[in-house]
Design a protein around this nucleic acid. Structure first.
Ligand SMILES: [Zn+2]
Ligand SMILES: [Zn+2]
Ligand SMILES: [Zn+2]
Ligand SMILES: [Zn+2]
Lengths: 152, 152
DNA sequence: CGGTTGACGTTACAACATTACATCGCAGAA
DNA sequence: TTCTGCGATGTAATGTTGTAACGTCAACCG
């Protein structure tokens, strides 16, 4: 497995890293964005936009429409603060914002929790295969569904 | 790239291969299933269950509910006659039913067409990485979004 | 001050997917 | 034959995910 240097953040450290990354990207770190990121970061499992909308609504004492959540999640995804898990129609906070690479997500069909592994050799091979087939601006989606160790 | 022996089917040959594969799996090849497979096989791009429902409805002169389509698509996926493209919420006919392996799909963000490549070394590496992380009964989802050669 | 811009709110709707239950036709048992 | 079980499909309702269009507001800049 390829070695890869980066920090895995958690809690306040993660929120701070996210803020820095967003500001570095020339975007604002608003209260709404902070709340959405905070809620997203509490999840072990990929969170749907609607899940997030509900929790953010509670936290703010005022309904936040899914619409608004989607807008901000899209921003987070494009700025690498969050990842979309395609096979779950849901989102995860990126535990290492600012570190650009393709993650491989493992999602348990049984308990729903997601873990992520990094293997740059593997993901580069996927990119290379796609480019060899004439694709450009490739964005690999590598997810593995299965049964996690706990649910084994 | 790993060598891989199998036939890529198309047209009547594909329908016939699908029928054989389904029957071999102990399932029935009904009119409804034949129609849904036929419609699915006409698509270049991943087809949504609703797309298929519409076309099958036309072909039969009678409304076929999405529900029924989903049932049969699920059957097709479990018997390897079709694949679900997670990043598109849609389905593709499997051009080589009966041949078991993990496909890598390339989906053009611009025109929507999907091609598929096979690289058993690559997919086995993905499986191995997931299993190394404690996952079992793994089902890799490897898709690449990007811009196809035509849209380049 | 007026004009522009970015963030967010509000409403409505479109697209994707599942659940529960009904019906139909056929094969085998009574 | 009649009954019965079963797999396939029909029907209706509902749940979940995602977008479009447009309005409001505050910050900022001439
Ligand atoms: Zn990393
Ligand atoms: Zn699990
Ligand atoms: Zn193959
Ligand atoms: Zn294209």
């Amino acid at each position: 497995m390829a070695v890869h240097n980066h920090h895995e953040h958690a809690g306040a450290s993660l929120a701070h890293a996210a803020e820095s990354a967003l500001v570095n990207a020339g975007e604002q770190w608003t209260d709404m964005r902070a709340d959405i990121f905070a809620v997203l970061a509490t999840f072990e499992k990929p969170a749907s936009a609607y899940d997030i909308a509900d929790l953010v609504s509670q936290r703010r004492g005022k309904r936040v429409a899914p619409n608004s959540v989607y807008r901000i999640l899209d921003l987070f995804v494009t700025t690498n603060l969050a990842r979309r898990v395609e096979s779950a129609n849901a989102y995860l906070a990126n535990s290492h914002p600012g570190c650009l690479h393709d993650c491989i997500f493992l999602i348990c069909d049984s308990c729903g929790t997601a873990t992520h592994i990094d293997d740059d050799t593997l993901t580069m091979n996927v990119r290379a295969a796609a480019e060899h087939a004439g694709f450009a601006e490739v964005r690999p989606v590598i997810e593995v569904r299965g049964k996690c160790a706990d649910c084994g």
